[in-house]
Design a protein around this nucleic acid. Structure first.
Lengths: 107, 107
DNA sequence: ATTATATATTGCAATATTACGATGTTAAAT
DNA sequence: ATTTAACATCGTAATATTGCAATATATAAT
């Protein structure tokens, strides 16, 4: 078996888990940190900066795009990947809401 | 090869990714939400509530314990799993710090 | 048109995760 | 001491993820 049983959870639980999951890889954390520290954000820079193959970086970027965290714009023969601030804040709010609602203790 | 190259990332990046990863499964999100809504938090309740086998719930609890999010106390022949509030707040702060530091845009 | 550059996609091997039945372990109840 | 109840661990099958070489695509430069 082994496949996640998404159907037994709520949409909210699946969505939260999906955000967490995409952020749950050090390369993707590093990519977001690096992009936020640059004024230009170019995939090839990331390959040198992070030390993974170009194909691997491209896949990680795709996953970050899949939850709307990154916007990609074509800039000549380069891609400019940027953090989507609205989405970023939206996800931060959803995660904080989860954290704040789940603070109750029992013991 | 497929194994995560942890050694090329900073401790902070690996730690952040580890927190996100543990929270990146709907069963673990659901477990945390359920425990926070109960006054008693008992593994057997979770099996019925969540709808996964006892062995599976036990494994998910172990992962939540591994990052210190849950405390488990023996209570007779039962276990009382509780959210570790200090750790919970600590992790929330670390994640918020990551989110706030990574808000800069470039495009 | 051809070549060079930048990024995406494909295919695949190695590894990790998810889930659960079966079996251990531990403590209360009889 | 045996039985029962609650949970943990082991073993294993199914699936997902990670990473990269090879290849495809798309634009800029010549």
């Amino acid at each position: 078996m082994g496949i996640t049983k998404s159907q037994i959870f709520t949409d909210n639980q699946n969505d939260l888990a999906q955000f967490f999951k995409v952020l749950g890889h050090p390369a993707r954390v590093a990519i977001l940190q690096y992009i936020s520290n640059q004024n230009a954000c170019i995939c090839n820079d990331l390959v040198e900066e992070i030390g993974l193959a170009q194909a691997t970086i491209s896949q990680h970027l795709k996953e970050l795009k899949s939850i709307g965290l990154l916007n990609g714009e074509v800039e000549g023969k380069r891609m400019c990947y940027c953090i989507n601030i609205e989405r970023w804040i939206d996800i931060q709010n959803q995660l904080n809401s989860f954290f704040n609602k789940t603070k109750t203790n029992c013991c």
